[in-house]
């Protein structure tokens, strides 16, 4: 039970590093969607007995994060004819090292935190911290608007992991709502990206600074 949960979180941590280290947008999107699917399965593992609402959310998460959102992103990439290279501000090796250092620090830090005894052995908190950190590194260190979206989504995955700690007390409706918001958000971004591309011929956030005033 805990073993397979930890395995999934370990997988998610590995995918974080993959997202940090890859130089192509499709690879990052793939890592992100795999991570979303892994996270989606977790509520099923955490519940001792079958609960139809939990499984509904799990299915919705897997579908949303694993298929719908990546599809929207890929469509946006195609529509706006975005080049698949990442254009990093922070190089790939430094971001990878940052991510790895962050992951190790998160594991070390989580041991110091006063957690519930049932969460003590699990990697939930370190996984969440590492994903949030990865999201931030991607948000700060990549130039393209689409990669920023990916960074944001990975960050959200981290927050979702935190949310799993409270799965017993948070109404699942909230989770479902967040998921819906996300999907709509990515959908909207897809449209905006297309519009920006048509209006300015570029999606480089560096160039968007000229839009101020």
């Amino acid at each position: 039970m805990n073993e397979s949960l930890n395995f999934l979180i370990g997988l998610a941590m590995g995918l974080n590093l993959l997202a940090l280290g890859s130089s192509r947008l499709p690879a990052v999107i793939r890592a992100m969607s795999l991570q979303g699917m892994a996270l989606g399965l977790m509520p099923l593992l955490m519940e001792d007995h079958f609960d139809w609402r939990v499984s509904l959310v799990a299915v919705a998460t897997v579908a949303g994060k694993g298929f719908v959102i990546p599809m929207l992103l890929r469509r946006a990439m195609r529509a706006a004819q975005i080049d698949r290279e990442m254009e990093p501000f922070i190089g790939f090796v430094p971001s990878l090292l940052l991510g790895a250092g962050g992951t190790i620090a998160a594991v070390a830090l989580a041991r110091q935190l006063p957690l519930l005894p049932e969460h003590a052995g699990s990697l939930l908190v370190p996984g969440a911290l590492a994903s949030v950190l990865t999201g931030f590194v991607l948000l700060i260190g990549r130039a393209k608007a689409i990669s920023q979206v990916c960074g944001y989504l990975i960050l959200e995955n981290g927050i979702y992991l935190f949310g799993l700690l409270l799965i017993k007390s948070t109404p699942l409706l909230v989770e479902a709502g967040i998921l819906l918001d996300l999907t709509v958000g990515v959908f909207v971004i897809g449209i905006i990206v297309d519009r920006i591309q048509r209006a300015f011929d570029s999606l480089d956030t560096r160039k968007l600074t000229t839009l101020r005033e």
Binding site: L17, G21, V93, L96, A100
Partner: peptide, 19 residues
């Protein structure tokens, strides 16, 4: 220019195995 990235990945894999 991609070689260091892959080697760093190898190093990190071994490092996580160590941890």
């Amino acid at each position: 220019r991609r070689v260091p990235l892959l080697l760093t990945t190898a190093f990190l894999l071994c490092l996580f195995a160590l941890l």
